[in-house]
């Protein structure tokens, strides 16, 4: 799977979230700066599961893993059992 494509899909999803404020780039600290809130995380998890076909294990629910779009893309790649639907 291509990490760059996963990252691209995540960036697109985040920028399209209702009420999303500000620029988002691969290394934007979206948790620390409050751009991604808890309901946003739940929406993002739903998107990753439904559109990319990847389920994130509970053990990966760690701040660092959701810190930036790039770390989320890493998480999706690491959690994928086989291919990612990008």
């Amino acid at each position: 799977m291509e990490h760059a494509k996963i990252l691209d899909r995540i960036l697109q999803f985040l920028a399209g979230m209702p009420g999303w404020r500000g620029e988002v780039e691969a290394d934007t600290p979206i948790l620390e700066n409050g751009q991604l809130d808890s309901l946003g995380i739940v929406s993002l998890m739903g998107y990753i599961e439904e559109s990319l076909g990847v389920e994130i294990p509970e053990s990966e629910f760690q701040f660092e893993r959701f810190a930036t779009p790039r770390s989320i893309a890493d998480l999706v790649r690491d959690s994928a059992d086989g291919s990612v639907a990008v």
Binding site: I41, V42, G46, F61, F66
Partner: peptide
Amino acid sequence: DNGAAKAAAQQMIGS
């Protein structure tokens, strides 16, 4: 709906 995920996300980000 998604109560457990919402709770885990809240706890994770400290909201």
